[in-house]
Simulated assay, not measured.
Amino acid sequence: MARILIVEDDRLLNEGLSYALGNENYDIVSSFSSAEGLIAFRSHDVHLIILDINLPDRSGIELCKEIRQVSDVPILFLTAKDTEQDMIEGFESGADDYMAKPFSMAVLSQRLKAILRRGGGEDNPQLFSDKDLTVHYDKMKVYKHNQEVKLTTTEFKLLSILTRNNKMVMTRQMILEKLWDLDGIFVDENTLSVNIKRLRHKIEDDPKQNVYIKTVFGIGYTWGSEG
Rank of each mutant, 00 (worst) to 15 (best):
I67T: 04
L17P: 02
Q69E: 13
E92G: 11
V70W: 07
S30Y: 01
R42T: 13
L76G: 01
S71N: 06
R68H: 15
V29A: 03
L76F: 03
V70G: 10
K65T: 12
D45Y: 11
K65L: 11
L78R: 06
P74L: 02
I88C: 05
I75A: 03
A40L: 06
V70A: 08
L21W: 01
L12H: 13
E92H: 15
D57K: 01
V70I: 05
R42M: 13
L63T: 00
L13M: 14
R11M: 14
K81S: 08
H47S: 14
I67Y: 04
L13T: 05
D52A: 13
D82M: 09
G90Q: 09
F77V: 08
D82C: 06
I49C: 08
L76S: 03
E92Q: 09
N23K: 12
L13W: 02
N14R: 04
L38M: 14
A80P: 08
G60C: 02
C64L: 15
E89G: 05
L55Y: 10
I61P: 01
S59F: 09
M87L: 09
S93T: 09
S93Y: 03
A80M: 15
D82E: 11
L78K: 09
D52H: 12
L55S: 02
A20D: 09
S30E: 08
I53N: 01
E36T: 11
R42Q: 14
S93E: 07
E62C: 08
E62V: 05
N25D: 12
A80F: 11
N25W: 12
Q69K: 13
D86H: 10
S34Q: 04
D57F: 01
R11S: 06
S30H: 12
P56Y: 13
D57Q: 02
I49T: 10
D52K: 11
V73W: 02
L78A: 11
Y26M: 15
E66S: 04
